[in-house]
Design a protein around this nucleic acid. Structure first.
Lengths: 255, 255
DNA sequence: CGAGCAATTGAGACAAGTCAAAGCTGGTGG
DNA sequence: CCACCAGCTTTGACTTGTCTCAATTGCTCG
């Protein structure tokens, strides 16, 4: 599911500008074109789109959008995984989502980003100026439709996450998370391949509204219940998908 | 802030169709036109919009959108307040938001509503068919832009709510809620008028991811702290706005 | 005036948090 | 090649904020 969010290109050291994406061929051969909003454009329109973009790479841990900063740019992720989060003054953190190849970041009506974005692994993205986006959307209404669809899906996902954060138990949260991860990796197809998690226990905890310790203990409980198997902490095999689904959907009254 | 959400026109007894909104004057004189997406349209376009709408009234407690039902219609609320929620099989409920005059409901990419909607007080809304919306948006790109803006704002609000549900204490949640309610009622202006809450303690609890008892106790604690005064359970006066803001923003380490 | 519902308050239980210690893993350099 | 360090994860013991259960109060309306 594409991500659509809000969140300055600043950090300890600047991310690396890889290329000016001013050639038609740039977007034409983009590794994530089908996955992104750019899929809505035909060859000719891609040319104009490319003229407005700068391709940038960022190392793991790099924060390239900071909550509260002026929302001057928006981003289209073409490679890697990014975590989006909000902070409270005392350091409490809530990860509001993970963005992947094809996802759109930084769209905001307000003058400032409402969240921060940090690369989890090595990341590549296209950067557009806010003004650039506006004229682009005016010229290509089809992209606007696409953005609306993406935003609608994001809203559905956000509501689901509110249900999780407000009403589900730790076990239910982790079950929901694992199923969502698997669904994202291989939609529909149920492979027996282990699911590899790119995020740490801390990230999972901050995404599910739990602590690291509770996430760890809950992994162990799911393992002991025979629902999953764990290899090397970040490779998970789902042993009982139906059981996990029942758990995630809140059917369990027993523990 | 306008609401933009997802959630069949069904319930125990059907809501009352008040009028076919087929006359130009209908939307022209609409009590919530400025507040809604319709504000984007000029006189001429309003004519076409009205042709597609049915005006309906519903009593308090009426559920007019049910999660999981086919998403055949979408709605524009013109009067009253609506709660939007998701349920787990055992009855646990999460209210994902409250919709007010001017808010848009039911926009969904998926075939089914992702949430239910229930009238809190007497409600009036315009109902459009899904197909109607599609052709409308095709004809009036300006409305699509408007919807995108609304959806963007909703997403920002949803992220804020995730922070609240995942990381804030009961006191912080209620403080955030009260400030948001006041902000919605009188944006910017800080009146000394008591804030009147249209929802029950149960609704507030299900919105904040708490129980009725905790909400009640937390109201009492805020009162004892001198932050608010409570009249008649549903009329609140904010006595110390700055204190409440600090609390809501998570600055408090003491209690 | 009593039925019914919402809200409050109290007492005790429990799920998840906190604090602390130890295990595991991967990288680095002697 | 191995020892050591640093960071992540797991596990244990204990605490606590919120939930659950239950009783009481207060309000509204017939």
């Amino acid at each position: 599911m594409p991500n659509f969010s809000f969140g300055s290109t600043q950090g300890r050291a600047q991310p690396v500008v890889v290329e000016q994406a001013r050639f038609h061929s740039m977007c034409d051969a983009c590794e994530s074109r089908e996955a992104s909003v750019c899929a809505a454009l035909d060859e000719h329109d891609l040319h104009r789109l490319a003229a407005a973009a700068v391709v940038i790479e960022a190392d793991p841990g790099r924060t390239f959008i900071t909550e509260g900063d002026a929302a001057d740019n928006f981003y289209n992720l073409t490679r890697g995984t990014v975590k989006l989060y909000k902070l409270l003054p005392d350091g409490r953190r809530q990860i509001t989502g993970f963005a992947h190849r094809g996802d759109f970041l930084g769209l905001a009506v307000s003058r400032n980003y409402a969240f921060s974005a940090e690369a989890i692994d090595r990341v590549r993205y296209c950067r557009f100026s806010r003004r650039g986006l506006r004229t682009l959307l005016d010229d290509f209404p089809v992209m606007e439709k696409r953005l609306l669809d993406v935003a609608s899906n994001e809203l559905v996902a956000a509501q689901e996450q509110m249900l999780l954060l407000g009403r589900k138990t730790a076990k239910e949260r982790l079950a929901s998370f694992l199923l969502a991860q698997e669904m994202r990796k291989t939609p529909c197809v149920h492979s027996d391949q282990p699911l590899s998690l790119s995020m740490t226990r801390g990230d999972i905890a901050d995404y599910l509204g739990l602590t690291i310790e509770t996430v760890s203990r809950t992994f162990t409980r799911l393992k002991n219940d025979g629902l999953i198997a764990i290899f090397h902490t970040d490779h998970i095999v789902i042993l009982d998908r139906d059981g996990l689904i029942r758990l995630a959907d809140g059917y369990t009254l027993d523990h």
